[in-house]
């Protein structure tokens, strides 16, 4: 990794942190926040590897005790509470979004970007977040899904669209992702 990549990674960790200062809307055990917008952007702007590391770095900062999560939470508590699964899924989500974005790079547009963000930012996050919520809180599947997924879907769809719109502008004016090399892409 070049120094430049390190700077991008640090930058997006900071972006996710600052998005946390946009007030969260509390709905039950898991609040609606702008931070998943940052997770989607990290993948869509930086690509798989750097996007993954940016989100991971953000989580490290939270774990270190900085109150960077939306609503000012921080420290280790969020990693063992009801939101734990969602937090663990974020780096994976950024990776998946980044990986798909890299593959779609030449044909990227807002629609494709939105679809990619839905796959990585909604499907992946709930695939990890809901089962962990169920286990930690000892809920039934129905309760976990109604409490931990359904209320957020409309907001998430909106965020997926916004992230794609932003990523599309950035792609045209300051592309950071390089098209995957043919040798690497072929495998």
């Amino acid at each position: 990794m070049k120094t430049r990549d390190l700077a991008y990674v640090a930058l997006f960790a900071a972006v996710i942190a600052v998005l946390g200062t946009i007030p969260a809307i509390p709905v039950g055990p898991v609040p609606i926040t702008a931070q998943t917008l940052g997770v989607m952007l990290a993948g869509a702007v930086l690509g798989a590897r750097r996007g993954f590391l940016a989100v991971l770095l953000f989580l490290v900062l939270v774990a270190l005790g900085l109150p960077l999560l939306a609503s000012g939470a921080g420290g280790l508590a969020p990693f063992v509470g009801t939101t734990a699964g969602y937090l663990y899924s974020w780096p994976v989500a950024a990776f998946v979004i980044g990986w798909l974005t890299e593959r779609a790079w030449d044909r990227y547009n807002v629609l494709r970007g939105t679809l990619i963000n839905v796959v990585g930012g909604i499907v992946v996050i709930y695939a990890v977040g809901v089962p962990v919520l169920k286990a930690v809180a000892g809920l039934s599947w129905t309760a976990a899904v109604t409490g931990g997924a359904l209320p957020f879907i409309p907001g998430d769809l909106f965020k997926a669209f916004v992230a794609a719109a932003i990523a599309d502008v950035v792609r045209r004016s300051y592309p950071v992702i390089e098209r995957p090399r043919r040798a690497a892409g072929a495998r």
């Binding site: 430049r4 390190l6 700077a7 930058l11 300051y174």
Partner: peptide, 25 residues
């Protein structure tokens, strides 16, 4: 606002991150 504020902001910040990496080097 997100398109007209956040996108240019991100571009500026990416440029800044690039400058920072030069300063680090």
């Amino acid at each position: 606002a997100l398109r007209t504020t956040v996108a240019p902001l991100l571009v500026q910040l990416l440029q800044m991150a690039h400058d920072v990496s030069e300063a680090l080097d």
